[in-house]
Amino acid sequence: MGFKLLSKLLVYLTASIMAIASPLAFSVDSSGEYPTVSEIPVGEVRLYQIADGVWSHIATQSFDGAVYPSNGLIVRDGDELLLIDTAWGAKNTAALLAEIEKQIGLPVTRAVSTHFHDDRVGGVDVLRAAGVATYASPSTRRLAEVEGNEIPTHSLEGLSSSGDAVRFGPVELFYPGAAHSTDNLIVYVPSASVLYGGCAIYELSRTSAGNVADADLAEWPTSIERIQQHYPEAQFVIPGHGLPGGLDLLKHTTNVVKAHTNRSVVE
């Protein structure tokens, strides 16, 4: 069995187990497998329904001669939608809004960016022009300005110390501490036991640490421990890039980060 097929099978099995364990909360999309990078042309966006009122959005972007996937989250909030992270750029984010209108038909009224990198804030200006209120932590807003990236308009308070959590509509926002970046936030959907790890969490097929220019490698494993301790009931975990899975993604990420750190020390 090929690795790609095995990865998709694991996603399907995880979703099936969740649907059985929580039949009222989960209505997993039966329309197909989780979209992969090879299936999404740059400039297009796919939506994948995880649970009743919960979707991931998947886009792709060219970077350094390669094409990478990027995940975000959409959560229903009454007759409105909360968006977590842009679709990595203005063109993708405009396509995301169009796809949401086509498939869901509810307005996106608020959006949260989970850290300051372009795959999370690139497209904020498109959201703002569409009347979406954009939010991020003060740290993310400051770092985005320093980096020359787009800056969300509103500040999220109460997320300055490791372990801080605040309720934001249908989700809980959690600051686990520094990891992929010093400002990275985690998003949890309690009604569906869905954990969105953003770039602080890796997919299972990833074996290298990737972009760690703004990471705190020493603190990252401790931050992941905080996530595990705060959300032990999480059933569906979405990484910032690639295929979702279960809580095993947290341990896998820790292993990859520690291996990278150990290699760096040896070198």
Results as ranks from 00 to 15, higher is better:
243 L>N: 15
247 L>N: 14
115 H>Q: 01
234 A>H: 04
247 L>T: 15
267 E>D: 12
145 E>C: 08
81 L>A: 06
30 S>K: 15
175 Y>D: 02
182 T>P: 13
202 Y>I: 15
251 K>Q: 15
125 D>P: 04
57 H>W: 03
92 N>C: 01
85 D>G: 00
212 V>K: 04
205 S>H: 09
265 V>R: 11
1 M>L: 07
202 Y>R: 05
80 E>M: 08
148 G>W: 05
54 V>Q: 04
80 E>V: 09
83 L>V: 09
203 E>M: 01
7 S>T: 08
171 V>E: 04
156 L>G: 03
103 Q>V: 13
228 Q>C: 07
235 Q>F: 06
34 Y>E: 09
112 V>H: 06
126 V>N: 04
194 V>K: 00
102 K>R: 12
26 F>E: 15
235 Q>T: 09
14 T>H: 14
185 L>H: 02
225 E>A: 13
150 E>C: 04
4 K>R: 06
123 G>A: 04
210 G>I: 04
257 V>F: 06
256 V>D: 05
80 E>K: 08
136 A>I: 04
197 G>N: 04
167 R>W: 13
168 F>S: 03
223 S>E: 01
171 V>A: 05
250 L>C: 00
105 G>K: 11
102 K>G: 11
47 L>G: 04
155 S>I: 13
38 S>N: 07
66 A>M: 15
244 P>K: 03
245 G>L: 02
138 P>Q: 09
208 S>P: 07
3 F>H: 06
72 G>M: 02
93 T>K: 01
79 D>A: 09
71 N>H: 02
236 F>M: 09
24 L>W: 06
122 G>W: 07
18 M>N: 15
205 S>R: 08
64 D>I: 10
227 I>W: 02
176 P>T: 01
92 N>M: 00
110 R>K: 11
80 E>R: 08
160 S>A: 13
205 S>F: 10
163 G>S: 07
236 F>R: 11
195 L>M: 06
184 N>D: 05
140 T>H: 04
209 A>P: 09
200 A>C: 04
47 L>C: 04
36 T>E: 14
105 G>W: 06
111 A>P: 03
32 G>T: 08
222 T>N: 13
156 L>A: 04
139 S>R: 11
210 G>F: 02
35 P>I: 08
202 Y>S: 08
86 T>V: 01
21 A>W: 10
185 L>K: 00
196 Y>N: 01
23 P>H: 14
219 E>W: 05
56 S>H: 08
40 I>D: 05
33 E>D: 10
208 S>I: 10
211 N>R: 03
262 N>Q: 10
196 Y>S: 01
29 D>T: 09
236 F>E: 07
249 L>C: 02
20 I>V: 14
67 V>Q: 15
104 I>R: 00
188 Y>E: 01
244 P>H: 05
213 A>S: 13
253 T>I: 05
145 E>I: 09
26 F>A: 12
191 S>Q: 12
171 V>Y: 03
127 L>Y: 02
121 V>W: 01
189 V>A: 04
92 N>H: 01
213 A>W: 07
160 S>G: 13
149 N>G: 10
35 P>Q: 09
74 I>H: 02
160 S>E: 13
71 N>G: 03
226 R>K: 07
106 L>C: 07
40 I>E: 07
130 A>W: 09
35 P>S: 09
118 D>H: 09
77 D>A: 07
210 G>C: 06
148 G>R: 10
156 L>T: 04
43 G>C: 04
125 D>C: 03
142 R>P: 03
196 Y>H: 06
258 K>T: 13
164 D>F: 06
84 I>F: 12
13 L>Y: 13
26 F>M: 15
12 Y>W: 11
155 S>L: 12
205 S>E: 14
75 V>W: 03
173 L>W: 03
135 Y>K: 01
50 I>F: 08
210 G>R: 05
91 K>W: 11
144 A>H: 04
256 V>G: 02
255 N>F: 09
189 V>D: 02
193 S>N: 12
107 P>D: 08
189 V>C: 02
251 K>D: 14
108 V>K: 01
230 H>P: 06
204 L>F: 09
233 E>V: 13
86 T>A: 05
256 V>H: 04
218 A>P: 09
90 A>H: 09
